[in-house]
């Protein structure tokens, strides 16, 4: 590594480190990963208990269940929490194993797109059931 003393550059020290990620951001990522792991765990316990208590998992039962606010709202939270958590976790895996800068950038870009798109589909489905007014047929 060349140091500032030996390297002739027009760039300021700040300009040289910009875009390489900052301090604090890593701690925030770590903390949010922990926070979403707790919320995801609590919501999945609710989810598992709710499913096991349902008389069945047929179309009508699931639809009627998801129409109630006490099922739809936790389900929406579960989707946000889960997709947020998996995005943070997958990002760490990518950062650890994809070393080439271009592929890493592209992988994280795709991860962000896929996570938001996946969560949007899941949220839409729950909202459609909850606000749609009853199962079809």
């Amino acid at each position: 590594m060349e140091t500032m003393e030996t390297m002739e550059t027009m760039e300021t020290p700040l300009a040289q480190v910009r875009g390489l990620g900052s301090a604090r951001e890593g701690a925030h990522h770590w903390w949010t990963e922990r926070l979403t792991s707790v919320s995801t765990l609590l919501l999945f316990i609710w989810f598992a208990v709710s499913l096991l208590r349902l008389p069945g998992l047929d179309y009508r039962t699931v639809n009627e269940w998801l129409q109630g606010p006490l099922a739809a709202v936790p389900m929406l939270l579960l989707i946000v929490s889960t997709f947020w958590h998996l995005k943070l976790g997958m990002q760490v895996v990518i950062e650890d194993y994809v070393h080439e800068e271009g592929s890493k950038f592209l992988s994280i870009l795709l991860l962000n797109f896929a996570t938001v798109a996946g969560a949007a589909f899941a949220l839409f489905a729950v909202l459609k059931i909850a606000l749609g007014g009853g199962p079809h047929a």
């Binding site: 179309y59 639809n63 997709f83 997958m90 996946g118 589909f121 899941a122 489905a125 729950v126 047929a137």
Partner: peptide
């Protein structure tokens, strides 16, 4: 397991919810 859940698990969850929202 994290990667498995994030890929296969997420797809399964989306599929289940979209199927329930799309009709019998």
């Amino acid at each position: 397991t994290g990667v498995g859940l994030a890929t296969l698990g997420a797809v399964a969850l989306i599929w289940w919810l979209m199927a329930a929202a799309s009709g019998p």
